Simulated scan of single mutants.
Amino acid sequence: MEEEATHRTVDDHREAVAPRRMAQLGRAEALRLLGTVSLGRIVFTQHALPAVRPVNHLMDGDDVVVQLHDGATLASIVAPTDATGVVVAYEADVIDPETHLGWSVVVTGYARRVTDEGELASFASRLRSWVDHPAMNAALRIRPDLVTGLRLTP
């Protein structure tokens, strides 16, 4: 029986899922939903190619704050003195694996390194690492220029 489950095809799963509708989310609703989860994916440029990493985040107003650790790839994408920042995308979602219902939000904007010690301390106390890392010692603030979201409904 276990072997049968591992040999299911995409077509088998597609037949089991009811048709869905896709509804666009407004900016405010998309950002609100983003604040209901703590894990997402950041898309950035590494060696002139797109790269994606799962990271923890929190919302600070409309901004997305992502924790960093020394030595991590993300820590090197923005220099602490870079006032303009770098363009990144951030995506988070909650989509049921069985029904394929839920939502997805993508934020695109400039990421800047957080340098204020008070802000870093506040973020460190509110962000929980999802892997075993040393304490957070840096953060990125993503200011959303473009916010898109969709909800999948029956």
Rank of each mutant, 00 (worst) to 15 (best):
M1A: 07
M1Q: 08
M1T: 12
M1F: 12
E2M: 06
E3T: 15
E4K: 12
E4V: 12
A5M: 08
T6L: 06
T6P: 02
T9F: 14
V10T: 09
V10Q: 11
D11C: 00
D12H: 12
D12F: 07
E15C: 00
R20F: 02
R21G: 06
R21I: 03
R21N: 04
A23G: 02
Q24Y: 06
Q24K: 08
Q24S: 11
R27K: 01
A28I: 04
A30P: 08
L31N: 08
L31P: 04
L31H: 09
R32G: 04
G35N: 00
T36L: 13
T36I: 03
T36H: 15
S38V: 00
S38A: 12
L39M: 01
R41E: 13
V43W: 00
F44A: 07
T45S: 14
V52D: 00
R53M: 07
P54E: 12
V55M: 13
N56D: 13
N56Y: 09
N56F: 09
L58H: 03
L58S: 03
D60M: 06
D60W: 05
V64D: 09
V66G: 00
Q67K: 11
G71Y: 08
G71A: 05
A72N: 06
L74V: 14
L74Y: 08
A75W: 13
S76W: 14
I77Y: 02
A79E: 07
P80G: 06
T81E: 07
D82L: 10
D82S: 07
A83L: 14
T84S: 15
G85E: 04
G85I: 04
V86A: 05
V87Y: 10
A89G: 12
Y90V: 07
Y90L: 10
Y90E: 13
D93I: 13
V94L: 15
D96A: 08
P97F: 03
P97Q: 08
E98L: 14
T99H: 03
T99C: 08
L101S: 05
V105N: 11
V106W: 06
V107A: 15
T108I: 14
T108S: 11
G109N: 13
A111V: 07
A111R: 09
R112Y: 05
V114C: 09
T115R: 11
T115V: 12
D116K: 01
G118L: 05
G118F: 01
L120G: 01
A121K: 05
S122F: 00
S122R: 11
F123M: 03
A124M: 01
R126S: 08
L127W: 06
R128K: 05
S129L: 12
W130V: 03
W130S: 04
V131Y: 09
D132I: 15
P134L: 01
A135W: 11
M136Q: 05
M136I: 13
L140K: 04
R141M: 06
I142P: 10
R143E: 11
P144R: 14
P144N: 10
D145E: 15
D145K: 13
V147K: 12
V147R: 07
T148V: 09
T148A: 15
G149E: 05
G149T: 02
L150M: 15
R151D: 02
R151E: 10
L152T: 09
L152P: 04
T153H: 00
T153C: 06
T153M: 11
